[in-house]
Design a protein around this nucleic acid. Sequence first.
DNA 1: CTAGGTGCAAATAATTTGCAGAGGC
DNA 2: GCCTCTGCAAATTATTTGCACCTAG
Lengths: 319, 319
Amino acid sequence: MQSEKTTAAYVDSLRPAGSKRSSKRDRIVDVFLRQQGHLTADDLVDLIRKEDQRISRATVYRTLAWMEAAGIARKVDFGEGRFRFEHSYRHPRHFHLICKGCNQSMEFLSSDIEQMIEEVAEARKFTVTQAVVQLYGTCEACTTGRPATTRLASTESLFARDALRIAIATERSGREFYTRAAAMTRDARARSVFERLSTAEDDHLERLEARYKQLLAEEPDLESQPQFLFFRGAANGLFSAGVDALRNVTGDKDALMIGIRCERGSHRFFKRYGEKFEDSEGKRVFLEFADEERDHLELLIREYRILTRKDQGKGKAGA
Amino acid sequence: MQSEKTTAAYVDSLRPAGSKRSSKRDRIVDVFLRQQGHLTADDLVDLIRKEDQRISRATVYRTLAWMEAAGIARKVDFGEGRFRFEHSYRHPRHFHLICKGCNQSMEFLSSDIEQMIEEVAEARKFTVTQAVVQLYGTCEACTTGRPATTRLASTESLFARDALRIAIATERSGREFYTRAAAMTRDARARSVFERLSTAEDDHLERLEARYKQLLAEEPDLESQPQFLFFRGAANGLFSAGVDALRNVTGDKDALMIGIRCERGSHRFFKRYGEKFEDSEGKRVFLEFADEERDHLELLIREYRILTRKDQGKGKAGA
DNA sequence: CTAGGTGCAAATAATTTGCAGAGGC
DNA sequence: GCCTCTGCAAATTATTTGCACCTAG
């Protein structure tokens, strides 16, 4: 459970200027942040009433609107004819699976869907501010008997777990890519760059694996929980396509170009998913890695330019 | 504009058993089917009242529920706190872009998103009955000035246009694939199969192109309308990957195998999109092509088996 | 002191329902 | 004649608002 201090700091960081504090609102926000799942306004009123009878339904509605404006709460619509609310604290944006049998909702995220959405929006010149993806149907528990899965882990933990898995696969494939590239590269400078990056990826890999272990130590049942983050191309690491491509490659420049492409994808991945956390340490680690991948990227580009100049020099000399 | 006869037949085909007809309901259904776009219950009441003052709001609500149950109407929720309704007649299922500026909604479809959704559902063992994808934001007209694009074409026409484009690209790439495969194949039987299929694809191509031209003749501005159907892998035809793959191939069996894979994708495409039409001639054409592609597929598989037996025979004879 | 914030009760807004009468088969 | 459909008005549900009072800065 999160300490009150942490959520208080979180709320303070979002509290809009020119709004006065009030004990009622603080109490509502506090109760709301202690919940998980998707509450209706009425659910929240009931929860509040357990702690304080003197809070009116109107105030709860007003506070919900206030929290939404502040970015503390997100309004979600499951087509029930009323809204539900989920909080953003340590809770990245996501999509929903909604079971019509048990009225439970599950969360997931798909990089691939997000990307397709961006492509559609771009083609239509549409600026997306909010993407809603909701799959209605029947969950596993309702289809089979009723052994409802133990749903314990927070979205944040699941997100961290899956993002780390992808990151680890990426670093692993990156290490392989750079090791192979170093072995096949003739240009000495380029080779030493590949060697350096191979070592760097190895270092990242160790840190990520340590973090993954730590995560599992904190929540041992995390590994058995269902997949949350879907990211097709990255299941084997963002460099795995590059490793394949390396096989049909002859020049050092080609290897650098492949590295650039992979590294760019990798940078984007860490940046994008680092930013997905509304708040957390995971965010810090991912953004730090994003920076390092960007450094790698720049290094590769620099090296590519040098090699290109060399070739041109040769070309000119030869001509 | 659709003839009344056609929509009447459509409604009759969906009318549930044991329900009796009534002039009021018929009138409401008729008015509803004449509209396009997403109507609120109130919009519909207003429209009805223009033709008949004696119809009550309750009846409209009840008829809307009746139409939804019959599959004539689809309830859509744009998070406005009330529902809207769109009809299914000649109107395939789709996703929505919703502009918060002008409250207009646009429709689109993405094969890729649909596929990702299926993958997520399968991984979570979730049975999806309805997939909602809604992108909220600002449309082009609201972002720039106000030259609102002429939105005239029906979803069905746009769907037909884009599906035909993909189909044409697929047949074109299929023809190229089979022509090349025939040229490089040593086995006489297999070669003649490839030649036959090349001719078949050429025939399909002509028919599809004729249909496409006809579509444009009916609605000349169709080509300038925005993209409706998004299907990444198929922009260059479902065989284009096969054409590429053919370059790195040596055996006749490999060529057959690539053909099988492409043909399977192509069959799926025609089947899936043929079925998307709630009702139409496009459906018939697509399903007919799906059948023919399935025949191709079976032919290829048969040929593949024969070639495999030959090889085994040789292998045994040689051993 | 003054701009918010709060409670209460009334207002809205979309949709549903009970009931008595009308109408199709 | 029976069962469904319909109109009307009242009920229900989720949410918002007017207004008088309260409270933090």
